[in-house]
Design a protein around this nucleic acid. Structure first.
Lengths: 237, 237
DNA sequence: CGCGCGCTTCGGCCTTCGCCGAAGCATTCG
DNA sequence: CGAATGCTTCGGCGAAGGCCGAAGCGCGCG
């Protein structure tokens, strides 16, 4: 316990992300869905045996939580904080590494999920629009929706009661590609859920290669484009 | 180049932080000062030879930049984005790991530097005060100082011209201990520099053990306490 | 009830890499 | 112009850990 060779907590959590196979799994989980060990094995490109070990370590380290259901074991990211850290680290990596061209990079820059909320240009534009118009205002440690903002969000199907029940939507993630904040937390989650639910957003098919963006890309449907324009005057790219 | 076994950029940057000795070096560099290889060797607890290898990797990976001066080689974090990522990852680690009691943890929670700007309770309180009073207002991708806010900041000795010259102070770091944003970017840097310069803040002595907080803790002087109360009505803990 | 499937555990191989001491450069100082 | 200092490079050692195939285990289905 008081092992003098023990890595500090920072090194320990970094080590969990430092393995290529584990990093691919975490990236896949950034899509927000709970995935089985088998699915994660495929995206990571290793056998089931290897995957099992990796997932045990990730769970032990608190990055992932497991939910057994029948003969499947579903894994998802443990919390918003894990997602935010991965997003931030991914952003740093993208900034530092030679600009490697992801096959679907352009689509992902346009709109994607960051665990359970909206990111990419669309997520950033939404955040800017809401804050710039005063529909969201800064409060202690985060954002709160002004009455006018609440009404407009509810009109688009967002369940604000459930968003309010969340601890607080203090966490505005720093965006991977745009280097600007987008809306995370309970409100971000409810927005994404509502708009996917009413068909404004649609998940784009996962890529088969080990792409870090697999399962994260979303697209705005024509209905969504219209809806966002009507509700917020938002002209999506 | 197209090595199929190459780790993704995320795993690569995580690996740089995943070694205990390197993590200690990075933590020490979060104090914002440029440190020599020898100083980093001492804080990391390894020999000069080992340190040299680590620093070469960190520089190669873009986390650190080197500045040779005489027979010393000074190292500092490469950018604000590196500092933000370390802070975020450290926050996740603190949240996940069993609450380990750092010797100077309480002092560091009160006020510390996050690379070149103010963090801890003081940094968070300042951010909240400035945004809550409307002295800072949200603009596209960050914060801008309102006229009233500019005047008050200038009155405390902050060089706003230099802050304006910075790319943008879009980056409000997520705080390690408080899990709330504090003020980073060009403005954060100028504030910390100005207040240290006029004796409002003082660096506290570095700890001798390999503490992750070494060289980061700062204290508010009586003059600083008075000054912050007069300028912003800020009652520091 | 027995088979199939998903997942984990075990054992063994092998690469990676962190570590050090010794030697080699460079810079500064006496 | 040596000698000391700061740092890097080299060579070699050892531990950590990532990988797999095979075997084991639990759950659901036929």
């Amino acid at each position: 316990m008081t092992d003098p060779t023990a890595p500090g907590p920072l090194a320990a959590v970094a080590a969990l992300m430092a393995d290529p196979a584990r990093a691919r799994m975490l990236a896949a989980l950034m899509g927000g869905e709970a995935l089985t060990a088998g699915e994660l094995a495929r995206v990571a490109g290793v056998t089931a045996a290897t995957t099992s070990g990796h997932l045990a370590r990730l769970a032990e380290g608190g990055l992932v939580v497991v939910h057994a259901q029948g003969r499947h074991r579903y894994h998802r990211l443990a919390s918003e904080h894990v997602a935010a850290a991965i997003e931030t680290l991914g952003g740093l990596a993208a900034r530092i590494a030679p600009v490697r061209h992801w096959k679907h990079g352009e689509e992902a820059r346009a709109a994607r999920l960051c665990w359970n909320h909206l990111a990419g240009r669309l997520g950033v534009a939404l955040h800017e629009r809401l804050t710039g118009e005063g529909l969201l205002r800064p409060v202690s440690g985060g954002w709160d929706a002004a009455p006018e903002g609440r009404a407009r969000l509810v009109a688009t199907g967002v369940d604000l009661d459930r968003a309010d029940a969340a601890p607080r939507f203090a966490c505005d993630c720093m965006d991977w590609s745009e280097r600007r904040p987008h809306l995370a937390g309970g409100l971000g989650r409810e927005i994404a859920a509502a708009w996917i639910g009413r068909g404004w957003l649609r998940r784009l098919p996962a890529t088969e290669d080990g792409d870090i963006l697999a399962r994260r890309r979303v697209g705005l449907t024509p209905a969504g484009r219209r809806g966002l324009k009507d509700a917020f005057g938002l002209e999506a790219a």
